[in-house]
């Protein structure tokens, strides 16, 4: 599958600032891939999302060198409405997204389609489908501001999915949620994987990134210090020295190896940890039998 977004040697400064928020960045986003963007706060994650979506420089202004191509066309050459159909964007805080003018969750999700002049019958179908996908059908008649944070975040996801964008950018969707709400949002994101959408996710909860993402982009001070497969990147103990948390299972694996435990590989998910540590323990049990 080809690249849907190409980032070509971009450097970006916000208006009135000297220090670039993003520096010399190049990479490609493949169609259908699931990308996790990680890095310390202030490393440029949200800015990068804004650049991929074209909010920067069109809305935030500022100074962009290099270019971001979406389907081979620079973001700066698109009309605003066009990119919003191609790339869905879910904000960090659902409050920034909820329109505030609709009385029910159903109407809130339908709002975007109304604005695009979609026929009523089709709107109903699509809203129902989006609510099913995000598991909020039972909330259809509730008020948007009277549902829980996790439910609001899923509603925000539904409002974006209903427009059927091929690419989704999701910026720290769970930073304000409890563990249950976080889990519910990630379950939805996982089902998106099966719908062949391209997903770009910013998230601090590294254990969940390890579980769900495929490729990782690590940002620090506006530069990409690592780009690649999650297994390689998230199992590398050197990341800790860069101020980036390893998944708990990778940290455990690295520390076990230091202790002399013979692990086949460094696990990054629970399943891998059970597999590889389980094997190490049973190997020892067998040796004991031989003795």
């Amino acid at each position: 599958m080809g690249a849907v977004i190409k980032v070509e040697n971009i450097t970006y400064r916000y208006p009135l600032t000297e220090k670039p928020a993003i520096k010399n960045l190049s990479f490609e986003i493949e169609e259908g891939g699931f990308y996790g963007i990680i890095g310390p706060n202030g490393s440029g994650k949200t800015t990068l999302c804004a650049l991929l979506r074209g909010f920067a420089p069109s809305f935030y202004k500022g100074d962009l060198e290099g270019q971001v191509l979406v389907d081979e066309k620079p973001t700066t050459a698109y009309l605003e409405g066009e990119l919003s159909l191609r790339i869905g964007y879910v904000f960090q805080n659902p409050f920034n997204q909820i329109s505030g003018v609709k009385d029910t969750v159903f109407e809130e999700i339908a709002y975007g389609l109304e604005n695009f002049g979609v026929p009523v019958d089709e709107i109903e179908d699509r809203v129902v489908r989006a609510m099913k996908l995000t598991d909020i059908e039972s909330l259809a008649m509730k008020k948007p501001f009277e549902i829980s944070g996790g439910q609001q975040q899923r509603m925000a996801l539904a409002s974006t999915l209903v427009l059927e964008p091929g690419i989704l950018i999701i910026d720290e969707p769970t930073s304000q949620l409890d563990p249950e709400g976080t889990e519910s949002v990630f379950k939805v994101i996982e089902t998106l994987k099966q719908t062949k959408k391209t997903v770009i996710l910013v998230e601090h909860k590294i254990d969940l990134i390890a579980e769900y993402a495929e490729k990782i982009i690590v940002l620090k001070n506006g530069e990409a210090i690592r780009i690649g497969d999650k297994q390689d990147i998230l199992s590398d103990i050197a990341l800790e020295a860069e101020g980036i948390q390893l998944p708990q299972y990778a940290a455990l694996g690295s520390r076990l190896r230091e202790r002399g435990v013979d692990l086949e590989y460094i696990p990054i998910t629970e399943k891998q940890a059970l597999d590889v540590i389980g094997k190490a323990i049973s190997k020892e049990a067998k040796t004991n039998v031989v003795h």
């Binding site: 708990q248 940290a251 002399g260």
Partner: peptide
């Protein structure tokens, strides 16, 4: 905690003492 887990798993793998 992580350090307790490392000790317990290392022990189960036959590594009796903290070599480090």
């Amino acid at each position: 905690r992580m350090d307790e887990a490392v000790d317990a798993i290392a022990f189960a793998c036959g590594i009796k003492e903290d070599m480090a």
